[in-house]
Design a protein around this nucleic acid. Sequence first.
DNA 1: CCTGAGCCCTGGGGGC
DNA 2: TGCCCCCAGGGCTCAG
Length: 232
Amino acid sequence: MVGATITGTARRGKYLWLILDGDDALLAHLGMSGQMLITSPDAAVGAHERARFTFTDGGHDLRFDDQRTFGHLMYDEGGAVLPSPIAHIARDPFDPLFDQPGVVAVIKSKRTGIKRVLLDQTVVSGIGNIYADEALWAAKVHGETPAASLSRSRISAVIEAARDVMTAALAQGGTSFDSHYVDVAGSSGYFARSLNAYGRAGRPCRRCGTPIVREKLMNGSSYSCPLCQRKR
DNA sequence: CCTGAGCCCTGGGGGC
DNA sequence: TGCCCCCAGGGCTCAG
C-alpha cells in the first residue's frame, strides 16, 4: 500500500473496495462488526483497530476497526473493476446491470426455502438477515416457502420489497442496534425504529396486530407474522 | 452440481 | 460477584 493513491471506490453486495492507481484494489468486507472510519491523525488507537492508513496530503486517516474479526481486508492486484476473490458474488439489486428476470428464474429453480435463497450471495447479493425478513414481511411470504413454489411475479415482488426496504434504510443511515453499526464518521443510522418484523418477537404485527414470531433458521433468527405470512 | 451443517471470532446480556 | 449459556446485520469450506 505504501505510495499507492486511492483513485476511486466501488462495491458489490456487502463487499467494497478502494481502487488503487487505477488498476489494483484493496478489497474489504465488514463481516458483522467491521467499521471503516475516517478519523483524525491524532486519534488514539482504538480497542479493535486492525489497520490504519495515513495519507501524505495532510488529511484524515482511514481506519479499519473490527471487534469480532469476521471482517477482512485483502490486496488484489488488477482488481479495480472486480476483484477476483469476489467474482462469484452476484450483482445486487442496486446494480444498473442487475438482471431481475434472470435472478427470478434462478430463484425459481432452487429447491430450498425463499429466505435461504435471498441470503445466498451468489444468487443476489447485498441482502442480509434483517432485510430478508423485512422484505418477506412486506411481500407477505414466509421464509420457509419453497422458492420453486412461488410464482415469478411473487418472487419479483419479494425482490422489489428488498430493494424498497434497503432504499428506505439507506435514507436513514442504515439499521443500528448498537455502536457496531456506524458510517465512516461514526454515526448510527435510524432504521431500526422502522423495522416491521426483525427483532419484534411478541410485539404486534404493524399490519394485522398478530404477535410477531421468532423461529430458528440457518443458525440464526427469523421473524415473521404468522397470519400475514402463512406457511404453505 | 446442489444443499445444509459447522465453524471462524469477541463481547454483551440474561439467568442462576 | 461470578459463571455459563446464548446471541450477534456473514460467508467460506466441506460432507453427503
